[in-house]
């Protein structure tokens, strides 16, 4: 029986820029940063208050499993905003939206009432998109 998700990967164009985005704009904790090659790190982050999840910021280009051709294709797809990686929850979406907008986060959907709560959508610095939800209180 699977009990939880411990690691999830997001493909990023530049690890250092992605780290800055997730830590300084979204307010995540850096969980691991281990050098594994020239300018390549095992780099994981996670929301404060969720200690059992690590989001791996996986570099596409350097020292990865991808061939140059696939790296290029994947980079293009990420930049075009092809991939959506998940849903983040927050206590109050208007406060979170206001803070993130002020820090320069690009939103593709403003907070909108949905049947499951209030949802906005934003992109990370690479182009990956996420949903941001204030869940409906029971």
């Amino acid at each position: 029986m699977i009990t939880k998700l411990s690691h999830a990967s997001v493909y990023v164009l530049d690890q250092e820029s992605a780290r800055d985005f997730y830590v300084n704009k979204l307010g995540f904790d850096e969980k691991m940063k281990i050098p594994i090659g020239e300018d390549v790190f095992w780099l994981t982050v996670g929301p404060k208050g969720q200690s059992d999840l690590e989001i791996t910021l996986m570099p596409i280009n350097k020292g990865t499993m991808f061939s140059d051709e696939v790296s290029q294709q994947l980079s293009n797809l990420v930049q075009k905003g092809t991939f959506g990686f998940g849903v983040f929850e927050c206590e109050d979406i208007y406060a979170t939206y206001q803070e993130f907008k002020g820090k320069g986060v690009e939103f593709t959907k403003e907070p909108t009432e949905e049947f499951y709560g209030i949802e906005a959508m934003f992109k990370d610095d690479s182009g990956n998109w996420f949903s941001l939800v204030q869940a409906k209180k029971e």
Binding site: I36, W42, T56, G63
Partner: peptide
């Protein structure tokens, strides 16, 4: 020891 082996192996790290 700190990196899940599936990632380390598939990336050849």
């Amino acid at each position: 020891q700190f990196i899940p082996n599936c990632f380390a192996e598939s990336n050849g790290w």
